[in-house]
Write a protein that binds this DNA or RNA. Structure first.
Length: 269
DNA sequence: ATAATAACCTGAGGGC
DNA sequence: TGCCCTCAGGTTATTA
């Protein structure tokens, strides 16, 4: 589920509630996530959360003793609720804080992860080979053009490769390609430099706009206060079985790397 | 190195 | 009502 905007929305939603808070108790109801939650996590009661940062789709809680690295997978979400609030199904992890609030991690499909990292979290093996942040200065036309120049893979698959650029998932890949006027199946090496420049801007604008609206809710995702993300209303092609809002053409659907893609055959080439 | 494919899970929705 | 099928925001490991 969550792509970069949803993860960033989550980070912003929980930050003020968890920052500087002591963890009074760690409750692990289900440790079988993407990787088993290690026993070290259970022994973090008494530690303090210094801050919450984000790298790609990972959330990083910096503690006074090590770090917690979270991933929301396909169906994960976090909420802040008073300790003792009624539990839902699939609330696998709960951090009870000194301020009386609990951070609850819910993930029906269990593709998410919670890892303990004693050292520098950005050096963790899952994070140390990630591509640049799409909203940062390192993601520019030169960079993406270099990545695409010799690749025969479809541009949508290139965009979704976290070793090339982080945070762009299945929804926003289709949306950004629509904004840039590029078909998702185009071979990356066949895309002109001006089109690459448009794509860089399209990715940035799409993600920034989605963050402003609290992300996109299709099924599972909620913000930390329980509200849905409102970018769903701004989707132009993803999940659209009707017509293009710009030209009226019927939106086309295809499957790439086992994922659904959508595009307008007239606006995108 | 790059590219394609299967795998990990639960739940919702449609057709019969 | 139930059963069977397909599909869903991600990413890693394995294989060509």
């Amino acid at each position: 589920m969550p792509e970069l905007p949803e993860v960033e929305t989550t980070r912003r939603g929980i930050e003020a509630h968890v920052r500087e808070q002591r963890i009074e108790a760690v409750i692990l109801r289900e440790t079988r996530l993407r990787w088993p939650i290690s026993a070290e996590v259970a022994s973090l009661a008494g530690s303090r959360i210094m801050d919450v940062s984000r790298r790609g789709k990972y959330l990083i809680m910096h503690l006074d003793r090590g770090n917690l690295i979270w991933h929301l997978g396909m169906s994960g979400s976090m909420r802040i609720l008073p300790i003792g609030a009624h539990s839902q199904d699939h609330e696998h992890v709960e951090l009870q804080l000194a301020n009386g609030q609990a951070l609850k991690f819910r993930d029906p499909r269990r593709f998410g992860a919670l890892l303990y990292c004693a050292g520098e979290p950005l050096q963790h093996r899952l994070l140390n080979k990630l591509g640049p942040e799409p909203l940062g200065d390192d993601f520019d036309t030169d960079y993406l053009h270099r990545c695409c120049r010799r690749r025969s893979a479809a541009i949508k698959n290139v965009l979704m490769n976290s070793h090339i650029v982080v945070g762009v998932g299945n929804i926003y890949a289709s949306e950004a390609l629509f904004r840039a006027g590029i078909r998702p199946a185009r071979a990356a090496r066949r895309i002109s430099r001006p089109a690459i420049a448009r794509l860089v801007e399209a990715v940035r604008e799409t993600l920034a706009s989605a963050i402003e609206q609290g992300g996109t809710t299709l099924q599972d995702f909620t913000q930390a206060d329980g509200k849905p993300g409102y970018f769903s209303q701004s989707l132009q092609v993803y999940g659209n079985s009707g017509n293009c809002g710009v030209c009226g053409s019927k939106i086309k659907h295809l499957v790439q790397a086992q994922r659904s893609s959508y595009y307008c055959p007239k606006c995108q080439s």
